[in-house]
Structures are given as structure tokens and as C-alpha cells.
Design a protein around this nucleic acid. Sequence first.
DNA 1: ATGCCTAACTAAGTTAGA
Length: 269
Amino acid sequence: MKIATFNINGIRSRLSGLLEWLERESPDIACLQELKAPNDRFPAAELEKAGYGAVWQGQASWNGVAILGKGVEPVVARRALPGFEDDTHARYLEAAVNGLLVACLYLPNGNPQPGPKFDYKLAWFDCFVAHAKTLIDSEHPVVLAGDYNVVPTDEDIYNTRSWLKDALLQPESRERYAALIEQGWTDAIREIYADERVYTFWDYFRHHWQTNSGLRIDHLLLNRALAPKLRDAGVDTWVRDLPQASDHAPTWIELELQGRRSATSKTKH
DNA sequence: ATGCCTAACTAAGTTAGA
């Protein structure tokens, strides 16, 4: 089973690339962030035509998250982060899909820092860490997938020089990500690529994509019940090279689940 | 210290992203 997370950066304006990616990579579950569309402009019909059921939590202009299931309708468990139910931003969606609990998150960016946006990021992150603690030892498999807006270490960025004051690299942001790992969550990309540079985001400025000047900020964390099933992980960098691409690329894991054949690797011709 | 690039909203200029 393949599970992916992808900050689409506007689902309306990048729908053709999204459909091309779904067709080619065929993830069983896909978490999307930054829909930038209200609920009534979510392209449910187009996704259905592509073979995907979907649940979504959108809002006008910004934010917005969705969970897609290949051939299945995800069952919504939560539409907001516990403790942050009054959030005016659509940043969290949790659903049951194919026997897994899937959390799709779009953690606040937090820039500029210091300031109210950074305070909001840290408060949101604290709530998320507290919620994660309730899921780490669940007997059910859980994946926390999304755009965390955190560069975990200096090994997760091409060069820190022009980012030192950025909210994504601040110790306060990194401490909270480290707290998740401390709880026992497995950072799937780091589990598979122990020492390699892996990036999931390349900003639109200064030819950063063309020079592979990237950041790793999209993460899939696995709880104790799920971590032993991890078989592979990667980033679909070809999507970042499409015309009108998002500044993020889809990031994925491959799991071997008992009693379930992996549709992506075993049924493809 | 800021712009670089891109999109949404709306109708030229601002806000936000990271």
C-alpha cells in the first residue's frame, strides 16, 4: 500500500498535474494540503472519474486539506485538531481509510518570526504534539502525513545561510518536531534514507528547483503499530518539474500490510 | 533588510506562502 502527502498549492490551478500524478503513481491514499479553494469548489467529480473517493475541509483563498482513497471513500474521524476546534484555518483532517487512521495536516508556516504568526504556529504545534501522544501507542496503525513546515535538522536543507531567521528552522519549531520523534514516531523518509539528502520543497525563487536547492518539510510519521510495515519511501520529484508545478513534490511511503496486497507494486503491468 | 516567484481575490494592488 502506497500512502502519499502532497502540498498541492491550489487544487484548482494544478488539477491537471494532480490527475497526471494520480494516474502515473497510483497512490492508495493521498493527503493534500493548501487546496486554496472553498468546499463547493473542490473537484470531487474529476477525482471520482480518476478512481478516487475524497473527503476535504476547505476554505476560500488559503489552507484547506483533503484525503483521497483509491476506490474507497475515506471515513472522516475529525475535521479539526483536538484543542484547536475553533481554528479559523482549515489545517487538519483525520479519516479511516483501508484500516488505517490517516491524519492530514498543514502546520502553520509561522513567518515572520517572532510575531503573532509564529506564536500561532507554536500553539498549533503544541496541540498537535499532545494529540499525537494519544495515538502513538494505539493498536491501530496510524500515519501523520502532511506539510509540517519544519526543517528537522540542518541535513534537511541545501544550505541554512539564507534561512537562519526563517520560522521553519527555529529551535522552537525543531524542538516540537523532535518531541514527536521522542514519543516514538518513525520519520519514514529518514528511516529509509538514513544519511542521504532528501528534499520535498523547492521555492519558486532564484532557480532553486533547477539547482536542487530544496528543503525537507513534508513528513510521514508512523506509530509503533505501523512502523514495522514500512518497506520503502520516496519523493516523486518529476511532479515538481511539470508546467505550473506546485513548489512541493509528492512524498510517499510503501507499506506491507498483512492480508493486503500492495496494489501499487503488485497489480501494475 | 528586501526581492526573487506564484496564486487568490478582484480588477491594480494587496496578502500569503516558506
